[in-house]
Nucleic acid binder design. Structure first.
Lengths: 186, 186
DNA sequence: ACACATACGGATGAACTATCCGTTTTGGGG
DNA sequence: CCCCAAAACGGATAGTTCATCCGTATGTGT
């Protein structure tokens, strides 16, 4: 395996950077569009990222990784309930801050391998925190591991429906999560 | 104003029926596609419904109307909290049952006049029920009128993320709503 | 410097959207 | 019953966006 050519690496970075910009300004990601803005040929972009989703995944991955490691820290927290709540808060905050995150989170299993992987990892951490909280009798029994990610996506979605301007989102999301957490507490 | 010709009326019905089928089977709505399936010319479909969204709106309207009148009935309920809860339950059940409903609910203000109208009506009913429940001291103060629709959309979204098969959706949605309601109760 | 692998670019075809206008159908008046 | 103007139909076609393919250019080890 040859290491990869310099120009290829440079273009890869450039494409991801341009995509990040587009995502941040809310423009729907279109590969031909990315190519034009990056001053590259369409073929180049498509070779690096066969689909829009693949590019989106790459853009979102750093943020997802951050969330995954966040979960590990949470395990060290003293109060099991607080640890669980803090964990969920971080996830929701990430989702309402980064539009790319919502999109990849909603993607079906297996289409985005890296994302699927990281989601599993996050879910693993969530499970541990949930189990601890449940053992401590802090959380209701009817909440399942598999509910965590969907519920966080739901709150993020509700937040996007509620507020047009990005500035309003964080407080709204926190308020919604608080309400949900109140309902989850035993 | 001339009453409209019979063939036009017949085709209109037919188009809506075909669209309903497509929506139900999860196929993304495409007007050319609708035309082919209905055995009509593309032009005919476009004349009746200038955009995909317009057709979707027509498909979703009966269901939205049902929800709107549901709210009115709810006003007659004895217990203010129960009335409010029952109202939200109906909305969520509608959203997870009918894919069309989710899509039009998410549409921006003003693009779908009829939908915007009905949403306002539903929100009006929701406001009244919320006000009553609040007066009775049954619901927390930090919930605003404008939060109702987003939260219901959020629950529907969470439900779609959670379960692939339509059969699982209704129980999941009910469970999520229960949790939320517990968190809303004063 | 050479040659070969690797990567680039954009012309190009496929898929879909939406319009326009010549033809057909409808239904009220003669 | 027939006529004809208004109304509606159908589908060819122009405009977009998506994705591929291959001739050309560029980087890299010898």
């Amino acid at each position: 395996m040859t290491p990869q050519r310099k120009d290829a690496a440079r273009n890869w970075e450039h494409i991801v950077a341009v995509a990040r910009e587009l995502v941040d300004e809310g423009t729907p990601l279109q590969l031909n569009d990315v190519a034009r803005r990056a001053g590259l040929g369409v073929g180049t972009v498509y070779r690096h990222f066969p689909t829009t989703e693949a590019l989106l995944e790459t853009v979102a991955t750093p943020c997802l990784e951050a969330l995954a490691s966040q979960g590990e820290q949470g395990l060290a927290h003293d109060d099991p309930w607080e640890a669980f709540a803090a964990f969920l808060t971080k996830i929701v905050e990430g989702q309402v801050t980064d539009p790319a995150l919502v999109k990849v989170s909603a993607a079906a299993q297996d289409v985005l391998p890296r994302t699927t992987d990281l989601k599993k990892q996050i879910m693993g951490n969530g499970s541990k925190l949930l189990a601890k909280a449940r053992e401590a009798g802090a959380v209701r029994a009817d909440l399942d591991d598999a509910d965590i990610v969907p519920l966080m996506c739901g709150i993020a979605y509700a937040t996007y429906v509620h507020s047009g301007s990005p500035a309003d989102r964080l407080p709204t999301a926190r308020r919604y999560l608080e309400t949900l957490l109140r309902g989850l507490r035993a």
